[in-house]
């Protein structure tokens, strides 16, 4: 599914990612853990194609297609979805309109006509119910005046609506109470299947109480320094990160 080879990237002269190698096969959930400032969010942005970061070497492949130079929207159309840590608001644009624009961009790319309004509403209401959001949520402006929980639920709503091949969750567990965390996690579990992949970026294990990862990576100073399974998460919880640095 996703293959990163020796990715070096940063902003201006500052190198943040210092040679990342990562392979996420179809059907697997991977976790990247690390302290603040270790480069985790940069990695998420580089995968999504954020042009604020410059890639100096290496390559990114999605399903054997080289996407290293691909535009942000084409990566999205190829199946990459980023759950934003801090989703921005777009005043005056309703969630319903925004979602339809996004769906139709994907449908157009697949040679399909725009989604039927009735079908759109039916699908959306189903997902809103699962996320315990009211139907009126669709009428609100994108992320405007949303609580922390609503912002993250809105991201999951979009994830389930667009049903991408790869979901990158950037600190999706931050700022959530236990109830919201449970709902968000169950949304991610609903998304998971044999044909897609998930990359979770976090510095806590709390989300991992609800979502079982297949592989766990530890990132320190722009490099993945250790890879393992849930046992590694427990070790980090007990001992922190210092024992991995020397």
């Amino acid at each position: 599914m996703l293959v990163l080879e020796n990715i070096r990237a940063g902003i201006e002269d500052k190198e943040i990612l210092k040679g990342i190698n990562l392979e996420i096969p179809e059907g697997e959930v991977h976790v990247i853990m690390g302290r603040n400032g270790s480069g985790k969010s940069t990695l998420a942005n580089v995968i999504a194609g954020n042009e604020a970061f410059e890639i100096s070497s290496g390559s990114i492949h999605l399903n054997n297609v080289d996407i290293t130079e691909m535009s942000i929207e084409n990566r999205s159309l190829q199946g990459i979805f980023l759950c934003f840590q801090y989703p921005v608001s777009i005043p005056g644009v309703s969630m319903a309109y925004f979602l339809q624009q996004a769906i139709n961009a994907h449908r157009k790319n697949q040679g399909l006509d725009d989604i039927d309004a009735v079908e759109f509403l039916k699908n959306s209401k189903e997902i809103l119910g699962e996320l315990q959001l009211d139907n009126s949520f669709l009428k609100r402006s994108v992320n405007e005046g949303f609580s922390g929980g609503e912002k993250k639920k809105s991201e999951i709503l979009q994830l389930l609506t667009l049903n991408p091949k790869l979901a990158v969750l950037d600190e999706t567990d931050s700022g959530l109470d236990v109830e919201a965390l449970r709902i968000v996690a169950s949304g991610v579990n609903k998304f998971r299947n044999k044909g897609n992949s998930v990359l979770i970026i976090t510095h806590y294990q709390r989300l991992l109480d609800y979502i079982q990862p297949d592989v766990v990576h530890i990132m320190i100073d722009g490099k993945i320094i250790k890879t393992g399974d849930m046992e590694l998460v427990k070790e980090i919880e007990e001992k922190g990160y210092s024992w991995l640095e020397e």
């Binding site: 999504a48 194609g49 954020n50 042009e51 604020a52 535009s71 942000i72 929207e73 999205s76 159309l77 979805f81 980023l82 934003f84 989703p87 921005v88 777009i90 925004f98 624009q101 996004a102 961009a105 994907h106 790319n109 979009q158 667009l162």
Partner: peptide, 15 residues
């Protein structure tokens, strides 16, 4: 904002 455009682009919506 660049961030608003990035958000829309990331959902597949062109510039």
């Amino acid at each position: 904002g660049e961030d608003q455009l990035f958000y829309c682009n990331q959902r597949g919506i062109n510039l």
